[in-house]
Amino acid sequence: MSEGKRTGIELRRDDSGQGPIVTGFQGSGFRVRDDVFPNGLLLSPVRALAWQDAPSIDALTHESLGDLFDIDPRPEFLLLGTGSGLRQPPRSFVRHIEALGFGVEVMDSRAAARAWGVLRAEERWIVAALLPL
């Protein structure tokens, strides 16, 4: 390939059976197929929901996740996207989620969205909460 010349490669993910997959970013939000979630996103293997009134990372509580964990079978862990940069959630939040029997994996929201796709392709049964970018 000569300098300055690029080949056009289009990547498509076969997400049949994987549930909702983040397919891109738009502004501070996330695209799931044709839907845009500008203010945060809650994901389970069977649904994508707008995260209405998503708190700041410092104000995060288990109550702010709504019924995210109420699926059968129970999810393995919570994938938490902390916005445009990696920030640690309150320790009390993590302790409460762990006391419920779930692990918590924390990363910035772009990385969490990409990790979601990889883990769902592996058919991992997880949930995610992605704060806006």
Results as ranks from 00 to 15, higher is better:
2 S>F: 11
2 S>V: 10
3 E>D: 13
5 K>F: 09
6 R>G: 06
7 T>S: 13
8 G>R: 14
9 I>Q: 09
12 R>F: 11
12 R>S: 13
12 R>G: 01
14 D>L: 03
15 D>V: 01
16 S>Y: 01
17 G>W: 06
17 G>R: 00
17 G>K: 02
18 Q>C: 07
19 G>A: 07
20 P>G: 03
21 I>F: 02
23 T>D: 08
24 G>I: 09
29 G>E: 04
29 G>Q: 09
29 G>I: 02
32 V>K: 01
33 R>M: 07
34 D>R: 12
34 D>N: 13
35 D>G: 00
36 V>Q: 05
36 V>K: 02
38 P>W: 00
39 N>R: 13
40 G>H: 03
40 G>A: 04
42 L>I: 04
42 L>Y: 06
46 V>M: 04
46 V>C: 00
47 R>H: 08
47 R>K: 10
48 A>W: 00
50 A>E: 14
51 W>K: 04
55 P>C: 07
56 S>Q: 08
56 S>D: 12
56 S>Y: 00
57 I>N: 06
58 D>L: 04
58 D>C: 05
58 D>K: 12
60 L>K: 07
60 L>M: 05
62 H>Q: 11
63 E>Q: 13
63 E>A: 14
64 S>C: 02
64 S>N: 06
68 L>F: 09
69 F>D: 00
73 P>E: 01
74 R>E: 04
76 E>Q: 13
76 E>N: 02
76 E>S: 11
76 E>G: 05
81 G>Y: 05
82 T>S: 14
84 S>F: 11
85 G>M: 15
85 G>R: 15
85 G>L: 14
86 L>H: 08
87 R>H: 14
87 R>P: 09
87 R>A: 14
88 Q>R: 07
89 P>S: 08
90 P>F: 02
92 S>L: 03
92 S>E: 14
95 R>E: 14
95 R>H: 12
96 H>C: 11
97 I>V: 15
99 A>S: 15
100 L>A: 12
101 G>M: 09
101 G>V: 12
103 G>V: 08
103 G>E: 10
105 E>K: 13
106 V>Q: 11
106 V>I: 14
108 D>K: 09
108 D>I: 12
109 S>A: 11
109 S>C: 10
110 R>Q: 14
111 A>W: 06
112 A>N: 08
112 A>W: 02
114 R>N: 12
114 R>W: 00
115 A>W: 04
116 W>R: 08
118 V>T: 15
124 R>N: 00
125 W>A: 05
127 V>L: 07
128 A>Q: 11
128 A>K: 11
132 P>G: 06
133 L>M: 13
